[in-house]
């Protein structure tokens, strides 16, 4: 990796005028808050990769079923959903897809908020909004799968 260094013109450092120390970027210093001294980000990083691999099968399979096979989107209806959720296999498929996609996407959005929202309060409230929407969606989707009633009418 080529790293361009800034040329400092004619500043002679000496024992009496030492160069400033640059901390390694991830060094834990006395100022690192307690709350960040866990491996949360490492597990988040791993989760993104593991859930991603599983989602390839679940989401691409879902799109194939919904948009390509059996006449594509034209066949989708209440009766079609009733037929699919009569099977525990597809219930489990949709449930796992719901949880993994929401947590994967939610964690991805958390990263993006951390990257772009620079003010502490903006970042805090954007994340609260994100967490609320994520929890709400996961719970609603789960409830719908478990309480689905083909004879609702």
């Amino acid at each position: 990796m080529a790293i361009e260094t800034t040329q400092v013109t004619d500043t002679t450092y000496s024992p009496d005028n030492p160069a400033p120390v640059i901390e390694p970027p991830r060094a834990r210093t006395g100022r690192t808050p307690r709350a960040t001294r866990t491996n949360f980000e490492l597990y988040g990083w791993l989760f993104m990769r593991l859930s991603g691999i599983v989602l390839v099968v679940l989401v691409l399979g879902h799109l194939l079923i919904q948009l390509v096979l059996d006449g594509g989107v034209s066949k989708v209806s209440f009766a079609f959903v009733a037929g699919r959720w009569a099977s525990p296999f597809w219930q489990a498929w949709d449930l796992i897809m719901l949880w993994l996609a929401m947590l994967h996407g939610g964690n991805g959005l958390r990263t993006i908020i951390n990257d772009y929202a620079e003010r502490d309060t903006t970042r805090f409230w954007l994340k609260m909004l994100l967490y609320t929407a994520t929890v709400f969606t996961v719970l609603l989707g789960t409830l719908v799968i478990f309480t689905f009633d083909p004879n609702i009418r």
Binding site: F78, G105, G108, L109, T137, L140, L143, V144, I152
Partner: peptide
């Protein structure tokens, strides 16, 4: 693309939830 799909999924779970309202609302 990640952000786009996340927003779609949010709406998509809401539209799927209409199966709990009535077959007509969903269709």
């Amino acid at each position: 693309t990640g952000v786009l799909v996340f927003f779609f999924l949010f709406v998509h779970v809401l539209d799927t939830a209409l199966v709990r309202v009535s077959p007509e609302a969903y269709d």
